[in-house]
Amino acid sequence: MTSHPNVQHLEYPQSEQQHGFAIKMMELLVIPTFVLDGNCKVIIWNRACERLTGVSAYEVLGTSDHWRSFYSEARPTLADLVVQGRTADIHKLYTQHGHRNDAGNNLCVENWCDMPRVGRRRYLAVDASPIYGGDGSIVAVVETLRDMTDEKRAQIALEQLATRDGLTSLANRRCFDDTLRAEWQRALRQQQALSLLMVDVDNFKEYNDAHGHLGGDECLQRIAGAVASEMRANDLVARYGGEEFAVILPNQSLKGAAIVAERIRSRVEQLQLPKRKQGRDYVTVSIGAATALPSPASSPSQLVATADTALYRAKHMGRNRISLPDTDTI
């Protein structure tokens, strides 16, 4: 039988004709496929796999270097985990994983891969199926790959549409509500403080009347950027509605929240956005701050109400300032 350049043959208890036909079928599959033997060495790397990874079969056949086709740093492929009997580790390496059949031996996962040779990340759906010998041991594992990058990016875009404000690119009200509930529960479990800032643009109607709606939109975008620039990695800034923004500050004391609020107030003032086309009267914000130590008897809505009350107090006291609950305005 003529040896094919893209495969390394194994001796199986079947006719050479059947063996060659099976390998030829595997080679011509339009689905990217590779096969590992019981020592995690590549014995088949088909043409579709070459096209997907940019790695030729002769580079990986007989080696255990196939991981380099998918990742920049060493880590096992799904087929490796199956061969090595490490399927319990799948959840550590893949966020999406499951089984294709009731027997549970056909595994499927999804993840982003670096794809070093082609130079761009791809989101791959992976299936791995073991092949057993007569004694019940695994003699090979077949791994098939599907490029789902376009579908994944479309899904991410849809999720962003559902959770992001179209004008400012900040989190929207829905995302704010969901995040506040989640952070409230986490603070309750960990017995940590949770702070909230309500930020409102002062006299925004006056700005809109002077600059038009497009000018008003640009003003909100500039302020959104100023607010977001003062955040830590775990903080959330959302467009709460109209010209009002909300900031969730996990594990932050009232004193810390007041410091953040003052930085935001100052940063917006430094933008020097003139309320009128001529003049030195600039756009400012008023901020209400509140902090809670969540308990089973309290709720996130109480935190929002307290911050709202503080915001109203800041407005009433003359705007362009911050206010804390039951304290003098700062």
Rank of each mutant, 00 (worst) to 15 (best):
T63C: 04
P13L: 13
I90L: 00
R51A: 15
V55R: 08
V83L: 11
A74Y: 14
F70T: 07
F70A: 05
E50G: 08
Y58K: 08
I43K: 05
T87Y: 05
T33G: 03
A79H: 03
V35C: 01
D89M: 06
Q8M: 02
A22E: 09
P13W: 00
N106E: 13
G20R: 06
A57C: 07
G98F: 01
D89A: 04
M26G: 11
T53R: 11
W67T: 15
Q96N: 14
P76T: 11
H66V: 12
T53H: 06
A74V: 15
R51S: 14
G98H: 08
V30G: 12
Y58H: 08
K92H: 12
V83I: 15
L81G: 10
S64Y: 13
I44T: 15
T63F: 09
T53I: 12
C40N: 14
Q8S: 00
K24M: 06
R68S: 09
L78R: 01
H99F: 10
W45L: 03
R51Q: 15
L10R: 08
V42H: 04
Q8K: 03
H97P: 04
S69I: 13
M25A: 10
H66Q: 15
G62N: 00
Y71I: 13
T77C: 15
S15W: 05
S15M: 00
H91D: 11
D37L: 03
I44L: 13
P13I: 09
R86G: 09
Y71T: 15
A22C: 12
D102L: 13
K41G: 07
F70P: 12
H99P: 02
E73N: 14
Y94A: 06
I31H: 05
D80E: 10
E50I: 12
T77V: 04
T95G: 12
P13V: 13
D37H: 03
E50C: 09
L93A: 06
T63G: 01
E11P: 01
A79G: 01
L28G: 08
R86S: 07
N46T: 07
G98A: 05
F34N: 04
S15V: 03
R100W: 05
G85C: 09
A48D: 12
I43M: 02
G54Y: 10
L107Q: 00
Q18R: 10
H99S: 13
L81R: 05
L52R: 15
L78P: 10
H19G: 03
D37A: 01
E11I: 06
H99W: 02
D102F: 10
N101E: 02
H99A: 09
M25S: 05
T53P: 09
L93Y: 11
E73T: 14
W67I: 12
W67V: 15
W45H: 10
C40R: 15
K24T: 11
Y94C: 09
H9C: 02
G85Q: 09
C49Y: 00
L107S: 04
V60K: 04
R75S: 14
D80Q: 02
R47P: 07
G62L: 00
S56L: 14
Y12Q: 05
Y71P: 12
H97A: 06
R75H: 12
V55D: 06
V83W: 04
I31R: 02
S56A: 13
L78V: 08
S72P: 06
R100I: 07
